[in-house]
């Protein structure tokens, strides 16, 4: 059938709001816990890494910026990545295999595009909540001092989106959760450590630096840092944002294809 050759048909996706409403209803049962951890996580990280470790770090290499001011925007972007990946792995597999919410939705007027867009919108909202919480903590601790933090929150949300859609595509192709361990250990963790969150990538050997510069996280970190340290250029920021959007769009296309392959049989 023609339906299986293209990942999504033009009119699909209009009903995504209904799928989003389900995830919100589901979230209402657990939101308190996630809000508390949303504040505590950044607090611990900033205090330990920024103030504890930062006190020992020679800030000469950072061009006069204090270490905590340096890593705060990096952590903002990295946390967006982690929330996005976390919310796009097990919950997606659960909705496919364990709780089968996607199957329930597909028996109604909703289609593949509605499922994907509704759930991606929900994950994006989760990323937004954790990013706002992080920004509030960072500003309260004095780790971020610029009003540009508001733009940086948007940049963090965009960073999350650049991970959400490709991970959706990946998760829909997994039969069990062992693939997620690989994803966390060999992709997310190295990116977290080596994509400019904790130190400039120029410190890395040339090859690793080149790799770090193509990761979406590096672009997210640079974008957030440029904004809150007010060192960004318009062209540079647009470049980073465009690159992240490309990942988000490409991932979305793959997610449609993966979901269709998995659910329309």
């Amino acid at each position: 059938m023609a339906a299986t050759t293209t990942p999504v048909r033009p009119h699909e996706g209009r009903l995504a709001g209904r799928a989003f409403a389900y995830w919100m209803a589901n979230y209402r049962r657990v939101w308190r816990g996630t809000i508390i951890s949303g504040f505590l996580g950044p607090l611990f990280f900033l205090v330990a890494m920024g103030f504890g470790l930062g006190a020992l770090v020679d800030d000469g290499g950072l061009g006069g910026t204090g270490y905590v001011e340096f890593i705060a925007p990096g952590l903002l972007a990295a946390q967006a990545m982690q929330t996005a990946v976390g919310e796009s792995t097990f919950p997606v597999m659960g909705a496919l295999k364990w709780h089968r919410q996607y199957h329930a939705m597909l028996a109604t007027p909703l289609g593949i595009a509605d499922l994907v867009l509704g759930h991606v919108a929900f994950v994006t909202m989760r990323v937004a909540i954790t990013s706002v919480a992080f920004a509030v903590v960072a500003v309260a601790l004095g780790a971020i001092a610029s009003w540009w933090v508001l733009a940086a929150v948007f940049a963090a949300v965009l960073t999350g989106l650049a991970f959400t859609t490709p991970v959706f595509a990946f998760a829909a192709r997994q039969d069990n959760d062992s693939g997620f361990n690989v994803l966390f250990r060999f992709i997310v963790m190295p990116m977290f450590l080596f994509s400019g969150t904790f130190f400039p990538v120029s410190q890395l050997p040339a090859l690793l630096e080149a790799i770090a510069r193509v990761t979406p996280l590096w672009h997210g970190v640079e974008l957030c840092r440029g904004l809150v340290l007010e060192t960004a250029t318009v062209a540079g920021s647009l470049g980073h944002a465009g690159y992240l959007l490309l990942w988000a769009a490409g991932g979305l296309w793959l997610a449609f294809a993966s979901f269709r392959k998995r659910l329309v049989t």
């Binding site: 799928a19 409403a21 209803a25």
Partner: peptide, 11 residues
Amino acid sequence: ENILVYGRYFG
């Protein structure tokens, strides 16, 4: 809640 959520899928 199961009925409520499902009804919302139908708009």
